[in-house]
């Protein structure tokens, strides 16, 4: 484990102050992320209010079991990230790295399930706006449901991919023993990003799949 002092930037008096600053900075960044998604949640709320029956009908075209499976996958990946942080604090760096790799694997599972769903929607014509051509549900508002659906799950999927990139970088660092003991800020902050991805999905799942 490297000496804790080497990680403190010169403008911080000690590691604890630096950790607090990093944590607060991450919460501020996550605030901007939440507000980014809030715009799409607002669009969802508005169009759901305008087209209640179309949203009800269109959400039945999305397979609930796939969304439930992905919910379980993301919740479990949140657990593995939290455990990686825990073992990194105990300087069990290899175990932390392995848990991060498991998390990345669960990210791939999530994207795979999403790809199967997207392929089905493309095949059936459940597409946004004027590209919507599903004959089974021709009501005003159904194309708008899929516009909102693809925007929300698409932006969320981009965040999953970015999170997997961050976790890869963290896993390499953890394996090499760059973190551990008192210095676990990168794993904590990177983990918070992954938890945010989980948080957004916790709201997307009932709104899009269950209604």
């Amino acid at each position: 484990m490297p000496a804790a002092g080497s990680h403190v930037a010169h403008h911080f008096p000690d590691l604890e102050v630096q950790s607090h600053a990093a944590r607060l900075g991450m919460w501020l960044f996550l605030a901007t992320e939440v507000l980014l998604f809030a715009g799409l949640f607002t669009a969802y709320a508005l169009y759901r209010m305008l087209y209640p029956s179309a949203f009800l009908g269109a959400s039945k075209l999305i397979e609930t079991s796939m969304g439930a499976l992905n919910t379980v996958v993301l919740i479990t990946s949140s657990l593995t990230v939290a455990l990686a942080f825990h073992y990194s604090r105990q300087s069990r760096n290899r175990l932390a790295a392995l848990l991060l790799v498991v998390t990345i694997g669960l990210g791939f599972v999530f994207l795979g399930v999403k790809a199967v769903e997207y392929a089905h929607h493309f095949h059936e014509g459940h597409l946004p706006g004027r590209f919507y051509h599903y004959a089974g549900l021709q009501v005003p508002g159904a194309p708008m449901f899929f516009t909102v659906y693809f925007l929300m799950t698409g932006l969320h999927g981009i965040h999953v991919v970015i999170g997997m990139g961050v976790l890869t970088w963290l896993a390499v660092g953890a394996w090499r023993g760059a973190y551990g003991g008192d210095y676990t800020t990168p794993i904590e902050v990177g983990g918070m990003y992954w938890h945010l991805v989980d948080l957004i999905w916790i709201f997307l799942f009932p709104l899009l799949y269950l209604i």
């Binding site: 657990l79 983990g191 948080l199």
Partner: peptide, 9 residues
């Protein structure tokens, strides 16, 4: 989400 924010985060 409260559980995630309080305990995972």
């Amino acid at each position: 989400s409260t559980l995630v924010v309080l305990f995972f985060m």
